[in-house]
């Protein structure tokens, strides 16, 4: 096989320190926000608390997967190999919560 296909996984340039430091900063800020939210009793007792924690969790998860694990840049095959099982795991988790009366 021609060399360009053998080394196709190196064609996608990974991000550099310039992006990574912003990614790290955002992760840090969101984590601070999460912990901060935990210490605001009015927020904790409101209906907005759980959705906002879940939202921040999902954002952090997505940032790490897209930038640190390079899914944004890498071959589409890897995206499929990850999002497929993740979806089934997510649906199963929600089904469990429903079946055990947690929803």
């Amino acid at each position: 096989m021609s060399t360009d296909r053998v080394h196709a996984d190196h064609v996608h340039e990974h991000p550099t320190w310039k992006q990574y430091k912003w990614v790290a900063l955002w992760l840090f800020i969101i984590t601070v926000a999460e912990v901060w939210a935990y210490y605001i009793p009015a927020l904790v007792n409101s209906k907005a608390f759980v959705p906002s924690i879940l939202l921040m969790m999902v954002v952090k998860f997505t940032i790490v997967v897209m930038f640190y694990m390079h899914l944004k840049y890498d071959h589409h095959l890897f995206r499929k190999l990850f999002t497929g099982p993740l979806t089934i795991a997510g649906i199963t988790l929600v089904a469990f919560l429903f079946l055990f009366g947690k929803l």
Binding site: V6, H7, D9, L81
Partner: peptide, 11 residues
């Protein structure tokens, strides 16, 4: 030779 050009271990 690999079909996709991707690394086995990474897949």
């Amino acid at each position: 030779y690999t079909t996709t050009g991707l690394n086995h271990r990474k897949i």
